[in-house]
Design a protein around this nucleic acid. Structure first.
Lengths: 224, 224
DNA sequence: TTAAAACTGTAACGAATGTTACAAACACAA
DNA sequence: TTGTGTTTGTAACATTCGTTACAGTTTTAA
């Protein structure tokens, strides 16, 4: 049985009332499937030709490496949608194996029916476009960040981004360790590099505050 | 004046006839704007609230760094759409500055009108969803690849991916130099690493053919 | 066939970063 | 205040990779 009070909390159905959703679902074909704890829901590599939304319970996503071992990627719970980025595009296969971590109910909407849904309701269309666009933008940002090779460049980019056009002093909300993890480097390496940048007169550090002394040279770091 | 014979070649309008497009455009509001060579079309950071499609001519996209210098990113020509990934989602700003490299005609469709278009025609909806999904998938793949730190891991991932479940011998279509560029490393480094992997008994190389000798150990490289 | 260009293998060296370890500074609660 | 746990600064050493250079091989084009 479909539970629209839960589903309308899903990012895809945001802004739609439970009743509105009820009416919308009456116009399309869909299935509600139950899975017991530990049961497989999708297998990595399987064709992804339907939108799956968790209606009840929680699941985990795992990747299988070439030797057969599995690594946990993510935990998800109701009312989250699965694999929204793989329903369309060239690679229509689930990238992960999903299994139930509790008793689970999934709403399964075949792709053509979901397309119909998108055409019926402009809000859902906007929500879905926003979901995958935001994901593409996030990945794009992450990729740009990784394109900076040295730690100095990563720090410079991070600080200039945070400082914007005017500010000179930047406050770091995280600890040095968390910042290092975000940068994908080790903490001692980050500390060493910050120390070097101080010596070079690029910045001044005071606990969690970093003052940019020379924006021009900071920029030059990002070009070479 | 809109030229549907050209626009129907655009990835967004693929599969639609020129006449069909003509009728579709008669139902929405849009503009056709002309730009002279070297004229600015969009400025980086500007709000992106309309879909722009090149109808005639060619443009270049440039990024501005924090010091004001510009770096060329991409060249595009008719009938390509601009910034499809930034029309929706959280970050609705053009990431790049676009200027005309020849006399140019752009078709400008306001976002609400484009949403209307998506609802009117399932083919355009599918095309657009495919465009941004494919982009997200491409970025995701690229990011996964960059997550491998050492050259050995990158080679292992590349070979295992190419070999699939069964094959043992992989043929490289590109030259070593091109492969190195794809990996984001220098050619001598790639050659050295391939040599090391041979010595370790992981692979055998013969010109452009690489034979995988030990899949199990190759996998272990990707875990640590 | 032959010359030029592109490709490949290899080596020595240096720069950037990871690894490990330890001590000082700080935050917070008993 | 004191003690405990967290955060930070720093150092020595190892590893990975880039840089540069050169010689041998293969491919291409004349």
């Amino acid at each position: 049985m479909i539970q629209t009070e839960i589903l309308c909390q899903s990012p895809i159905f945001r802004g739609i009332t439970s009743d509105g959703l009820q009416e919308l679902f009456s116009k399309i074909h869909y299935q509600v499937k139950s899975y017991q704890k530990n049961e497989l829901i999708t297998i990595g590599g399987e064709i992804c030709d339907r939108l799956l939304i968790i209606q009840q319970g929680s699941v985990k996503a795992e990747m299988t490496d070439y030797s057969g071992k599995t690594i946990k990627i993510e935990d998800m719970m109701a009312p989250w949608p699965l694999a929204t980025a793989f329903l369309f595009g060239k690679e229509n296969r689930f990238p992960v194996t999903v299994s139930a971590t509790s008793d689970v109910e999934m709403v399964s909407i075949p792709k053509p029916e979901f397309v119909k849904m998108l055409q019926l309701n402009a809000l859902i269309l906007n929500n879905y476009l926003n979901t995958i666009s935001t994901r593409a933008q996030f990945l794009s940002q992450k990729l740009k960040f990784l394109s900076f090779k040295t730690i100095k460049q990563k720090i410079a980019h991070y600080l200039l981004e945070k400082a914007g056009d005017r500010l000179q002093t930047v406050e770091i909300q995280q600890s040095q360790g968390q910042l290092a993890e975000m940068f994908g480097v080790t903490r001692p390496s980050l500390a060493r590099t910050l120390g070097e940048m101080c010596q070079e007169g690029l910045i001044e550090t005071d606990r969690r505050y970093i003052k940019i002394l020379d924006k021009v040279r900071m920029n030059q770091l990002l070009l070479g």
